[in-house]
Every structure is written in structure tokens, then in C-alpha cells.
Design a protein around this nucleic acid. Structure first.
Lengths: 360, 360
DNA sequence: TTGAAAGCGCTAACAA
DNA sequence: TTGTTAGCGCTTTCAA
């Protein structure tokens, strides 16, 4: 029967029973000092008798000043972060590295625009040695400020760089440009754009104007928008309220709908994420358009989407898992007192079956 | 500039500067006792001057004996748990409740059959007030034993019940039976089965014999297998190595393949999860079979699968988010010293477009 | 090789 | 209302 946490034996009790001092007993468990194997055995035996199973982590933590926990600030409410295959892959890589170093991951909900409290109480008061912001959305993230005040070192992911702070990033702008250039090189000129939300609220959805685009605050979105325009001006830009297949589908249904004269219909779409692009493929199918003959579609992320079969999405692949791994290594480096670095990981356009030459 | 954690001011320093005692300063922050607003202001002012931003959680934790952290033991390696939409929905609900109670979620990898270490070091030594096993796979889970030894109270999810331990569950057996009964009532008699892994290794895949089925250890699988057999004997059982669409597809390609004479081909499939069932739908399409006219397909979980469009999976819906919420409430109840309960949540078969009457 | 003593930073009795 | 005192459980000098 599990004891309640309150009546657990302490190291002092074990030491007493073994007839040694507390400090000696401590050595028996930590193994960090000289101790007779005989003494150790006696301590361990006493521990077993008392049902003592190792030092209380809380005491150890207070003493060492470290708690072995890395706070991972998610970019959105956790439900969404979990549902987002991109975040998940990153988390996967991150947890792998941290696990190897015996560091635990404390999940912390990030920006909660609809809520009254701008930041989760955990940000302000949970014990953690380092915090990782896996989705660096805003230039002036309140989480970042709060953690800075507390003196919790951080690792960032994304466009933002800060002196003394390790950052893991990809070149979103160049990646987007590569995707669009692929389309222009195939002869496309009427290219539509489906974007991620322009602000953290994610309340907006639909065709957006140049004015709104100029006001975009989410840095990933901003970078990918810029990349598009480095190559050509889109014929239409549709803002999705989140990176979900369904939203991509809605966007493409509007962009490619029957009310658009075939002569003016975009011949290609660049969607800022694979989820959105996949939705666009589905919409095209529903509208009776052939992919890629009638409409070419490019995504961003390089997700594995078996259910899109037989199509394979042409996409700008980014090393999501490696991103997480790099952030984990940055955390470990930070704790080891190494110099913070900015790591830029490569992206690569990989052609699938959803893009081809423009007709005529 | 973020200070390093080591040179942070302490409450003692703040008290000294404010010209009050440490305990008074403590009251100024906790608000848990009588204190003049004037004194509090003086303390707060001193804190600001020193750049002190609230009590160190480590000290507070040691004193109170609580750390405000709930360990969530995932059923598998975290990468998979994240990729599994079922776990994700449960986690979502769980985090919502825990967040409301200012409890943090520490992710802990669960069973790692391929690794040498049977359990994650976090299970043995991370600070946590309660642990939640969200995927109670085995009757003799090593995590459960380790946590019990440490005196960490646990909340379970699944088939297993233990005295004094809160459990959240659904009736997997009845749910599976309902799915299969739906098929028999439609006139189907040749019904195939695609199961979850029978053991935690997940190394096996393919047609399985009654002997192997009898050895199944994963409790969810066992319950759903039993539910099927409460209604009728399957004509064939295929074990998937994990709940992925791709595996369901492979299974169905074999079950429905051209080498099976049409007269002997199963007219219906019950897959133990929606992911597997969705894979079966895709396989059927690839084989040129009509769903549901040529083959009816039922799943389990009630996931939203927009990309399966235009099909909507007939499925036994279980309240995944509510499961997480119930576990969160169980955690809170446990911490409040309430009596542990076994909560059984309802399931419901909801017809989509993937089942219809057996022909002839 | 072991033990004594001094905290890590905070909170909560209790006394003033 | 504020201060004094005594730890929470552990680690780590330093001395024996």
C-alpha cells in the first residue's frame, strides 16, 4: 500500500537507524565521496527496512539550486500545440535530448490571447532551470519578459534573436522564396497564397489586403510572406485562422471556386504550411480540378501525409525533429555555462506530385 | 539583462533592505497573514530596488512539501504519444483542469520496451505531487510499482483498478461489442478484425492465431478483443504494430486483397481504433472497393478525420477530452484528500457513411 | 573514512 | 501587526 507522501522516512531517520551520521548516509546514496562498502551496505539496509527509497528531490533541489526541469512554453493553448504536428515533432526531438540528460519537461501554455491573464502562472513561479520558447511568435513576448525578470535563462526558436540567448531557427523567408520560385520557374504567374494567422489572436480569416499584411506581427508568418514577395506578388492572399487542414480547404474552395473565371483562376497556390496545403489539395479534388495539372500546390514543413495518397505534397522541408534536438542541446549548453549560439538549420524544397508546369 | 539564477536576491536581503523581518517580508508576498499595507509597500519597494521577483519556488516547495507538479506518464515513447491523436486529446483535457488549479504537467516517457532501463529516471526521482498514468497498459506496470514505493499517489486510466487509486475508464469491451453488433445487425457475418498491438513491444504485425490472442497483455486490446467475441467470431484477426493509418492500410490491403476470392472476402471490418479504420478505408479505395457497399468499416475513438472526406467513419465515440478532464479532477481530489473513485465514462456508436447493409 | 555543523530560501508556529 | 525561532530534507565543507 502506497504511503502518503507526508509520513515518508527521511535521511536522518535512516542514518539514525544505521548508526551513522546524516552526512555519511548522504554519501551512501550519492556515491560522491569516500565511504566503506560496509558502511554503505549498513545504510542501504536501514533504508530498506524503513522503506526509504532515495533522497527527497525537493531537499536536494533546494540545496543544489537546480531542479532538473526545463519549462517548455508552448506557442498557444496546449490543446492546439498538441494537435499541431509541427510542434509535436519539435517536442519529440527536444524531449529526446533532455531525457538523455535527465532533465524533465514541464509543459507551460503560452500566449493566451483570449484569456484575461496574459501569461500562465507557471511562467512566473514554477521551478525550472531553463525555459524553452518553442514558438517564438511575437517580438515582445510577455513570457520572455517574465522569465527574464525571474532570471530564468531561455532558449528561443524562431526569427527573434537576443543578445546572450541561444536561438534555433530556419530561414523561413528563403524557404518561402524557394517554394514560390519553384512555381515561377514552372511558368506560373497567377499564384495564390494561403497564410498562417497574421496575429496571435487567430480570429481573422479570409482575403486580406496589403494594409493588413503590413500590420502582421507573428514573425514566422511575416518571414514567409516576405519570402513570397521576394519572388513575385501573389494574386490573392487568404489568411487562415490556424494551421489546420480544414482551414486550408476553406481557403482553397474560395480561391479556386466556380465563381472565379477559369482564365483568372490561380494556376498555383503556395500555402505557408503543409496542413493548409493539404487542405487545398482536398479542396481542389472536391472542385473537380486536377492536381497538379489544373492547379499546382506547394506547402511548407515537409510533413508526412500518407492520407493525402496518392498525392505527395511538394513542400519546403524543414528539419523539425532536429530543431527540437538543437534546442535541447542549447539547453544543455546553457546549463554547462557555454556561450549561447544562434543555430540556423537548413530547409530544402522537395518535389512531390502536386506541382507541374503551367499550361499553355 | 537576465541575471543568472545564482546571484538572485533572497527574501532575507529584501527584508533587510526594507528594515523588517524575513517572516514579515514573506507575508508581504504570500498575502496569507495580517500586514499593514504600508509595510507591504515598503517590502515591495525594496524588492523592486533589488530586482527581487517573488519567492524562490524551491524554498517554498521544500517548506510546504508540495511542488505543484503532476507527473504524466505517457504510454510509450513521447514521440509516439504526441503523434497519437487519442493521447493528445486526453492530455488536452487533463492540462486544462490542472492549469486551472495551478498545477504544472511534467511529461514522463512511459514504457520503453526496447530500452535497457525499464523506467525513466524521472519516475524514480523527479519531484511531483501526483502521477497520472494516462495509458494503463499492463497489469504489472513497473512505473506503478516505482511510484508506489516512492509514496507518490497515482491516478490511473484504463482497465486496471487498484484499491485506493482513482481510475478513469470507459467500457472498452462493451464499446467494441456495440460496434460489432452494429455490423451483425446490418447482416454482416464475415467480419474481419484489426487490433491494436497485443503486447507493449509492438514488434508483431500480421495475422494472428487464437493462441497468440490468448496471450495478449495490453489491457485495452484485450478488452476490445473480448467485446468482438461477445457478439461473433471474426473471420480473420490482423494485429497492427501501432495505431497508425498506415498500419490500418496495410492490414486491410491484406485482408481485402485480390487474392481473396470475392465470395470469401470479409464484408465488414472492425478496427480497434479510428486511425486503423481510416487506413482500412483508404486501402479499400485503393483496391477499387466501394465503401460501404463492398465493405463496411467501423472504428473506435470518434476522432474527427476531415481528410477522410467524403467518408465519415462509423465509430464508437469515446469522450477523450472528458477522460483527461476526469483525470485532472481525480488529481485535484486526491490532493484535497478526497476518497478515490472509479469513474466510467460513456461510449456511443455514431453512424457515419462507412457502414451499410450486407449485400444479398 | 566518518561526523559535526552550517546552511540552501522559505514558511508557520508562537511570542511579543 | 510584527519579530523570533525552528525547521522542511538534503548536501557539503571542514575537522576529527
Amino acid at each position: 500500500m502506497p504511503r502518503s507522501a507526508s509520513d515518508r522516512p527521511t535521511l536522518a531517520l535512516v542514518a539514525q537507524r544505521a548508526g551513522v551520521s546524516v552526512s555519511t548516509a548522504s554519501l551512501a546514496f550519492s556515491g560522491a565521496g569516500p565511504i566503506t562498502s560496509e558502511t554503505r551496505d549498513r545504510v542501504l539496509a536501514a533504508a530498506t527496512e524503513l522503506g526509504y527509497h532515495g533522497p527527497n528531490p525537493l531537499g536536494r533541489q533546494l540545496r543544489s539550486g537546480r531542479c532538473g526541469i526545463v519549462g517548455v512554453v508552448l506557442g498557444d493553448n496546449p490543446g492546439r500545440a498538441f494537435r499541431d504536428p509541427v510542434s509535436i515533432r519539435v517536442l519529440d526531438g527536444l524531449m529526446e535530448v533532455l531525457g538523455e540528460h535527465r532533465l524533465g519537461v514541464l509543459l507551460i501554455p503560452g500566449n493566451q490571447p483570449q484569456s484575461i491573464a496574459p501569461l500562465d502562472p507557471l511562467v512566473a513561479s514554477a521551478a525550472m532551470d531553463v525555459a524553452v520558447l518553442i514558438w517564438g511568435a511575437l517580438p515582445d513576448d510577455p513570457n520572455l519578459a517574465a522569465l527574464g525578470r525571474r532570471g530564468v535563462p531561455v532558449v528561443l526558436c524562431g526569427e527573434q534573436t537576443l543578445p546572450g540567448v541561444p536561438v534555433v531557427r530556419i530561414d523561413d523567408r528563403a524557404g518561402a522564396a524557394e517554394a514560390v520560385r519553384h512555381l515561377t520557374e514552372l511558368g506560373h504567374t497567377r499564384i495564390a497564397e494561403i497564410t498562417l494567422p497574421l496575429d496571435v489572436w487567430g480570429a481573422h480569416s479570409g482575403v486580406v489586403t496589403a494594409a493588413r499584411i503590413a500590420e502582421a506581427t507573428v514573425m514566422v508568418t511575416v518571414a514567409r510572406l516576405a519570402g513570397f514577395r521576394d519572388v513575385i506578388e501573389p494574386v490573392i492572399t487568404w489568411e487562415a485562422s490556424a494551421s489546420f487542414v480544414e482551414h486550408g480547404r476553406e481557403a482553397a474552395l474560395s480561391i479556386l471556386g466556380e465563381w472565379v473565371p477559369a482564365s483568372q483562376r490561380p494556376t498555383a497556390i503556395f500555402a505557408q504550411t503543409d496542413q493548409l496545403a493539404a487542405g487545398a489539395v482536398i479542396a481542389a479534388r472536391e472542385l473537380g480540378l486536377r492536381v497538379p495539372e489544373d492547379v499546382s500546390i506547394v506547402g511548407f514543413d515537409g510533413l508526412d501525409l500518407p492520407w493525402l495518397s496518392p498525392d505527395v505534397l511538394t513542400s519546403v522541408h524543414q528539419p523539425l525533429r532536429a530543431k527540437g534536438v538543437a534546442m535541447g542541446q542549447a539547453v544543455v549548453g546553457l546549463l554547462a555555462g557555454e556561450e549561447p549560439q544562434v543555430v540556423t538549420l537548413p530547409t530544402q524544397l522537395i518535389e512531390g506530385t502536386t506541382t507541374t508546369k503551367a499550361e499553355g
